[in-house]
């Protein structure tokens, strides 16, 4: 049941939504339109002239092996970040849900990493894993792993995944904890009486009931990994070595501002935009509905 508000004057409701609409138009629709427009042009580096090229920018992109590789890297990066961040936070949330004493302190401490900017999170891990200075690289060396993300592309990718996931853990933790706390205790008790051990209780009762939360977080984490990790990559690997960590958002920047190919960069932005729209659509359409009870 929705409560309908009835305004007495006709212009008041419009006046109330006007600022929001103005901001959306100026800061979202206008730039989006500009990106869409420039994706159809070939522009010279100084912006003096541009030529209509139709869909050729897009054509070039999908014929560019490095762009397709970036797509693959982005998918690996995105799903690894989402999986790692969610698995860790679910573990922590389950543990925190059992804590009775000092629960608030524990929770507050776990939320801190979320206050760290992605770039900073990247830099922290960059130092920790620095092959000559980093303590983690040193430990890895002790157990026989030769760590050098300057040279080894897989290791570089792994490093940015860990850094990006670490930052997201606290956010996921909050939602998982809230999700766990909304599961009636009596269900778990009933399962205990039904002779299910703690592990079985978790996988057969708790985890299925968390599905709405899990699905919501999956979308949010993917969006985060796909789009919000630019600064992290930029501050650490700069997409390298040899494009091993060059995810799509970083590639937009590299193509446009480093390669000065504005048309190609705009075309990439449009593709990313389409991706965001698709994911937002999935989220709005299914997150509300994908409640399985």
């Amino acid at each position: 049941m929705q409560k309908r508000v009835v305004f007495r004057s006709r212009w008041l409701p419009y006046a109330l939504v006007a600022p929001q609409i103005a901001i959306t138009l100026v800061f979202f629709f206008w730039p989006s339109y500009q990106a869409l427009e420039s994706s159809f042009f070939l522009e010279d580096a100084f912006g003096f002239s541009r030529d209509w090229v139709g869909l050729r920018n897009y054509e070039a992109l999908f014929n560019d092996p490095s762009y397709l590789r970036s797509f693959k890297t982005t998918l690996i990066f995105g799903f690894s970040v989402a999986f790692l961040a969610m698995a860790l936070s679910l573990g922590l949330a389950v543990a925190a849900n059992r804590v009775i004493r000092a629960a608030t302190t524990y929770r507050t401490l776990l939320i801190w990493p979320y206050a760290v900017a992605p770039a900073l999170a990247g830099v922290i891990w960059y130092f920790l894993m620095n092959p000559s200075l980093g303590i983690v690289a040193y430990w890895l060396g002790e157990v026989g792993i030769d760590w050098n993300h300057y040279v080894n592309g897989d290791q570089a990718l792994l490093m940015v995944i860990v850094a990006a996931a670490w930052k997201q853990v606290s956010y996921n933790f909050l939602f998982f904890l809230a999700g766990l706390q909304s599961i009636p205790k009596s269900l778990i008790e009933a399962a205990a009486i039904d002779r299910a051990g703690p592990v079985r209780r978790f996988w057969s009762i708790t985890f299925p009931l968390l599905t709405p939360t899990t699905f919501f977080l999956l979308v949010v984490n993917l969006v985060y990994a796909f789009f919000d990790t630019f600064s992290l990559i930029h501050a650490t690997t700069e997409g390298g070595p040899a494009d091993a960590t060059s995810i799509l958002v970083f590639k937009v920047y590299a193509t446009g501002f480093v390669g000065q190919d504005y048309g190609g960069s705009a075309a990439q932005s449009v593709i990313l935009m389409a991706l965001v729209i698709a994911m937002t659509f999935i989220q709005f359409r299914y997150v509300e509905r994908k409640v399985n009870y």
Binding site: P184, S186, L187, E189, A190, A191, A192, I193, D194, R195, A196, G197, I205, P208, L209, T211, N292, Y293
Partner: peptide, 20 residues
């Protein structure tokens, strides 16, 4: 003993049926 090992069954006020 654990609840499951006591040879009991319980009916809860809110029924506690597994909703899924």
């Amino acid at each position: 003993l654990e609840p499951g090992d006591r040879d009991i069954a319980m009916v809860f006020q809110n029924y506690a049926l597994y909703p899924h």
